[in-house]
Structure formats: C-alpha cells, structure tokens
Amino acid sequence: MTHTISRRGALGGALGLGTLVLGRPHVARAAVKPPINIGYFVETKPTNIVKAQGLLEKATGQTVTWTEYGSGAEINAAIVAGGADIGFGSGSSPVAAAISQGLPVWLVGLVDNIGPAEELTVRSSAHIHSVADLKGRKVATPFGSTSHFRLLGLLKQNGLTQKDVTVIDLRGDAIVAAWSRGDIDGAYIWAPAKSKLLADGGSVFKTWDKLDAVGYVIADTIVARAGFAEQQPLAVTALLKVYGQALDFYRTQPDEAAKVVAKAAGVSPDVAAADLKEYDFISLADQLKPDWLGSQGKPGKFAEVLHHTAEFLVEQKSIKSAGPLATYQKAIHTEFLRQALA
C-alpha cells in the first residue's frame, strides 16, 4: 500500500498538473478485515450466484464491493489501478494480454470453457454457407474480447484478411441495434446479444469446434491482483470455495439456480436457463487436471492457450511482445484452488 501511495505521489508531482489533491490515497483501513473489491460482469453464469446470495460475505465476514465492468480489458485497468482485487470472469484474451505486459495479474481459477457459447451468428437471408462467403461482408465483434480473437483466428485459418471481411468494433448492445437495421451480416458474440440475433433472423455458423482443435481455445477465468493474493490468500481461497458452492448449486438445482441468475442479470428464468446451458462450466477439481491448469510442478495445457493467445495478439500488434511459455505457467497459481478443495 505504501508503495502505491509513493508511486502515485511521485507521479502526480512529476506531472505537476495540480491534480495530486485528487489522488485518492489507498490508505489501508485499520480494521482487521479490509474490504474485497471484485470486478465482475453481469451475466447469466454461476458467478452471479455468488454475488446474489452474498456467499463471499458470509464466508469471509469481510465487506465485499462488487463493481460491474464492461470488458476484461476494463478489469485489467482496474487491477493495475488497484481498484479491483479480483477479476471474476475475465476472458482468456485480456488475461493473456495482461500477463504478457507484465501486469500484476495472477490466474487463480477458471469459470468456463466458452466452446459454442460464443459463436458466429449470420443473417439467414445473407446465404453465408462457407467462410469464403464472408468476403465483402460486415461482421461485428467487441474488439479485444475472446470473440474477437476467435473471429480473427477464423479469418486467418481460412486465408482471409480484414481487407476481405470488414470487421467492426461493436459492443453487444450496439450489435443488436446494428443487426436490427440490417447494417451487419454477421456477429461473433455471446448471450444475451447472440440469442437476440438468433431470434431476429440469425442462424449459427459453427466455427468453434474447428478453431478449438487448432488452438483457438477461449475460456473465462478468475484472476487476482498479485498484491492482493499475496496479502489475503485466504480471501482468494474463500472466493474459489464459494464459487464451487455456486457451481454445485447449479449442478444439483439448475432451475433454482437459473432463477437466481435471471434476477441478477435482469432476464427471464427461461432465458437464463438456456444461456447457462451454453457454457461448459469447469468444476474446481477438473481445473486442476492436465487439460486445464494442471498441478504444481506439472503445468496444464491452459498456459499454452494463454501463450498462443498472446502470440496472436502480438501478430495483431495489440500488444508489443509475448513472453515464453514459462511466463504464462508462472502466472497460473493453482495453490488457491488446491486449498479450496482441501
């Protein structure tokens, strides 16, 4: 904390903008239990059960501040700024970017294997039957997202460039608006926007299985600010534990869970139930298997996913450079998961 203050102080002085007075010093509370700041997304996933039912508050007795973000990139910024301790559901692309840039981000768990949940949706009337048919079309996706990564991967795998296909940077809400006007022929996106496109003359153009097979795996993760994980390892473990409980709740009582999620996300229980089924939520135990995070000394395959993602982002010139595989293996911390399962 003191480090943060001195850094901000030096910075403010260096800038000489007189804005230093505004710098909100992050003074650690004298109280024994400092608050936990969680950055999350409002979405139809078990992550929102943890918030809705106050599971973490009950488990730790600490104050938990939940702040909603629009993208994993925003959560990265918040973590660097010290405003978020946990990124609850950050996509693998922004996380790979963060680790490559040496930001203080630890990957402590996974939420889901995205699989078919993010997929290319095309206008049925546009007669797009092969990837080549996308030539000259407009396809929208939120830039910097896992969907963006997959879409660019799809183009690359099929020898197309962004000169052949116009890729447009739109957020989910804007995609629905642009779609309803007929401005775009396709979108790579997730629920709820995806469901709305499908209901409005869209059809699924399946790309995920082939892309997954050649390394364009995408997943949603749980990340922690390095300083926070070092100072409050118990809080991180507690979060994973209660997330495990939320997952169990969803497994055993899917209908009840859908109701909770629906209320949190402001959609109907039917929609929530359908959205939940799209994702392959990975149980805490499975996360420790070699296919995913692996165990201590035996890094799993997910580090390779991050590494591949990062190299792709470098190719796209979004980030300057990627590290070697070891960088990503080191950023994956499985000890919290093990303790949560113990």
Binding site: A73, N76, V80, A98, Q101, G144, D169, S318, I319, K320
Partner: peptide, 8 residues
C-alpha cells in the same frame, strides 16, 4: 480507445 483496451 483501442490502445487503451490493451493498456498500451
């Protein structure tokens, strides 16, 4: 905006 997304 795009550069900010990747904290460049």
């Amino acid at each position: 905006v795009d550069a900010g997304r990747f904290l460049r």
